[in-house]
């Protein structure tokens, strides 16, 4: 690109602006890391707890499987810090995406902490905001499997209102595998193809 300014017509100026904006459009981070990390952890927690209850394998300790969430937060924080440092461009959509998931985590935290007040109907409550965040992420990065993932979470969330708590855990596990892990792997495969 040169710096001559006398030869720049109005049309050329417009062409520069549109071509640069088009260049910048593809810059939303399409990281599959978070979907795979959380997908695996939440799937293990839900399905692990379900099978511990069903197979009478130390059922008293089954809820403690959720402690896995704590090191996951730490891993996410460390990875996020590193990624922010290495990123050469930060877009508004990256910021929106980040805060969307932080807001979602804040929204669902009370249901996890005070599950007894909800008669342990936790998954019914938390799957709706997870569905919203997944769906909006699909819109932001223009990735259809995440849109379907979001819809699936909504369907699973509504279904959970009609299920006993233990079956809600199974529904949560299935929803995470289908609505989160599978789109996460599809996103990773697409990234590898594009690279």
């Amino acid at each position: 690109m040169e710096t001559k300014n006398d030869s720049l017509s109005a049309q050329q100026s417009l062409d520069v602006i549109t071509s640069m904006i088009r260049q910048a459009q593809g810059n939303v981070s399409r990281s599959s890391f978070y979907f795979l990390l959380w997908g695996w952890v939440i799937a293990i927690c839900n399905l692990g707890m379900y099978f511990m209850y069903k197979l009478h394998f130390y059922p008293r300790y089954a809820p403690y499987i959720w402690l896995l969430v704590l090191p996951t937060y730490l891993a996410m924080f460390i990875y996020g810090r590193k990624q922010e440092k290495d990123r050469i461009v930060k877009t508004h959509l990256d910021q929106i995406s980040k805060w969307l998931w932080i807001s979602m985590a804040i929204t669902i935290a009370p249901a996890w902490l005070f599950g007894d007040k909800l008669n342990w109907m936790i998954n019914a409550v938390i799957m709706m905001p997870i569905g919203a965040a997944t769906f909006v992420s699909g819109i932001i990065i223009r990735f259809k499997p995440l849109l379907y993932g979001g819809i699936l979470f909504w369907v699973a969330g509504i279904t959970c209102y009609f299920l006993p708590p233990i079956d809600q855990i199974l529904a949560g596990g299935i929803a995470v595998v289908l609505g989160y892990l599978i789109p996460g792997y599809m996103l990773r495969n697409q990234r590898e193809k594009d690279a």
Partner: peptide, 8 residues
């Protein structure tokens, strides 16, 4: 134009 579309 690039900076208008990006945070930084």
């Amino acid at each position: 134009s690039l900076l208008m579309s990006a945070e930084s």
